[in-house]
Design a protein around this nucleic acid. Structure first.
Lengths: 196, 196
DNA sequence: GCGGAAACGGAACGTACCGTGTCGTGTCGT
DNA sequence: ACGACACGACACGGTACGTTCCGTTTCCGC
């Protein structure tokens, strides 16, 4: 996450103040009003200090968001793949439904299309590892006979996360538990059913 | 689409030049360099004229993109729901894969989170009508016995489009025909299979 | 036709934020 | 102890914003 002059002398105090201010501003005034200058002013920090360690405000918020997401959506294994996927997806949906994390992630996604480095960073540090974890959990269910061998697990992950992103990006009202349960059930069915 | 002072005296010449310049600039220099000032300069038009008819550059591009999308992804009914969905999704993916439409739509999506009016406009004028069309096509397949009665058709549409948005937003390499076919097959299976 | 309302192009304005540079201070490794 | 370096602060030029003013052109209604 730290970008340029890796150093031990970095001020942890400033780092925390910057991440906190970024999220706070996102809550109070919305992502559009989160600017480098506003973060610096709110955190009592020089702009230069922010630019020294992060390439953009998107990168600042990505670091803050990643920490929160990993805590909020662990991959558990109770032996029931359906229940575990439901609680996992519900955790992600819930995190996205509350400020500042929903707006923050929407803002991060909105920067991807004009910021190649941020897009790569998001995929490498957040999306890809968690997709791998999800596939791992599905493979475990496969070993327990809850999913047929040969099932297309990467596709299953995209079918799970796809609608969540779709809703979040289009800003449709959040999904309730019932919708999440129906989604998970349909994805699992699609893996089990005989070929079309 | 026309926003404020509905009038017959609007210059169709300026309107076309603005939409064309917006898409051209998107191709040549990327969405990030499409600004109201650049559009005005390229189209030989006053900024005031743009602000008179559109509330933002996102609204300009939404109007241009909508026209293109409707042409590119019709809903046909050959009697084979699988084939029809494959060609429909392939049309959408293909449109998103070529400039200026891919970058333009990514840019539009990126504006939604800080522009409530644009988000509402996108849903009402583009997404919701096409979701309804998709549900209509699925219902027709239901009547022909290709999909069981009682299937959750709205959810099916989200499972179809979700991964497309997911990939587009995260800027993962475009889906090939095989992936699209697998996606469509899985969605149809999930509707047919016995309950989980 | 003719007069006037309204849309037009062009130019300039102040504001906001960007990303960078400079400078003096303070602090942390060696 | 000392020197390197991160720090805060402040100022800079640059870009795009959204608005305002001006003089011109276009077109509707009379």
């Amino acid at each position: 996450m730290i970008t340029p002059p890796s150093s031990v002398r970095r001020s942890e105090r400033s780092r925390r103040a910057i991440l906190r201010s970024a999220l706070d501003l996102c809550t109070e005034r919305g992502y559009g009003h989160v600017t480098i200058e506003a973060i610096a002013a709110d955190a009592g920090v020089s702009k230069k200090t922010i630019y020294r360690w992060w390439p953009s405000k998107g990168a600042v918020l990505l670091e803050a968001f990643t920490d929160a997401l990993i805590d909020a959506t662990p991959f558990v294994d109770t032996g029931d793949i359906g229940a575990d996927l439901r609680s996992h997806v519900a955790g992600a949906v819930k995190l996205l439904s509350v400020p500042p994390f929903g707006p923050a992630y929407a803002g991060i996604l909105s920067e991807l299309h004009h910021d190649d480095r941020l897009a790569q960073q998001l995929r490498e540090q957040l999306v890809d590892p968690r997709v791998e974890e999800a596939i791992g959990r599905l493979r475990s269910a496969q070993d327990q006979g809850q999913i047929p061998p040969g099932a297309d697990l990467p596709l299953a992950v995209e079918m799970l996360y796809g609608p969540v992103y779709y809703r979040h990006v289009l800003r449709k009202p959040v999904q309730d538990e019932k919708t999440i349960a129906a989604l998970v059930d349909h994805v699992l069915r699609s893996l089990r059913a005989p070929g079309y």
